[in-house]
Simulated scan of single mutants.
Amino acid sequence: MRHYHIYLLEPEVAANYFGKEWLIFQLFIEGETANTELKEIVQKQIKYISSTLPSLKIRKNLDQTLKMRSDFYVLNEHYYLDVKALESKAVLKDHGHFITVSASGSYQAETVFFEILRKVNSCFFAVDFGNKNYGWLNPVKQVNYI
């Protein structure tokens, strides 16, 4: 099973750390594994570089995009997508300061959620602590000045 924590980072952070995503990942790892005193400091740093989620906009986009699908449902503010034909399941939950997506099977269901989120904002950063995967949902385009 894959578990993603998805944070909406400030646009300046996204622009400045494009290509240096491993530094952001290290910060999130420290936030999960540090001792109590250091963990508190790191959590403040994470809060500083991340934005408040536009929860209403996310819910609206999820509902509008997925309402016609028979494999989509909402239960206790959890958004479920169960694509039986592809053996793919995913659950999205808004925690206020970050979003979690838990998925199993093929990547189809979680990709649907990721596509909706990246249309909401281009600065979403996903971290899968268990598999040590991380990255932008929508890669920030880098401007090259010659």
Rank of each mutant, 00 (worst) to 15 (best):
K60E: 05
K84C: 12
E32P: 07
I41T: 09
V83N: 14
Q64G: 01
L75R: 14
L86H: 09
N61H: 08
T33G: 03
L66H: 04
K93S: 07
F25T: 01
E40R: 13
K44D: 06
T36W: 08
K67P: 00
M68T: 12
V42H: 04
L92P: 01
E77W: 03
V42T: 09
N76L: 03
I41V: 10
V83K: 12
R69G: 02
Y48L: 13
T65F: 07
G31D: 09
L66D: 00
R69M: 14
S88D: 02
L27Y: 11
K57G: 01
T65L: 00
T52K: 15
Y79I: 06
I58A: 03
E77I: 06
N61G: 01
L53D: 00
F28K: 11
M68L: 13
S51P: 00
S50C: 04
L62N: 00
K44H: 05
V74F: 05
M68D: 15
S51L: 14
V74T: 07
T52H: 12
P54D: 03
Q45P: 08
E30R: 12
E77N: 14
V42A: 11
L62M: 02
L38M: 08
L66P: 01
L75M: 11
P54E: 01
T36E: 09
L38K: 10
E40A: 11
G31C: 04
H78F: 07
V91H: 04
A34R: 02
V42E: 01
A85H: 13
K84H: 10
S51T: 12
I41M: 08
A90E: 00
R59A: 01
Y73I: 07
E30N: 15
V74L: 08
S50M: 04
V42S: 05
F72L: 11
Q45M: 13
D94W: 06
S51F: 15
I46S: 09
I49K: 00
L81M: 09
V83C: 14
K89P: 07
K67W: 05
L62F: 05
T36H: 08
L38N: 04
L56P: 03
D94P: 12
E40H: 09
K60N: 08
L75K: 10
Q43F: 13
D94C: 09
V42R: 05
Y80N: 15
E77V: 02
F72V: 07
T52I: 14
D82I: 13
D82K: 15
E77S: 12
R69K: 10
I24S: 02
M68N: 15
E87G: 07
Y73H: 06
Q64W: 00
K39Y: 09
T65M: 02
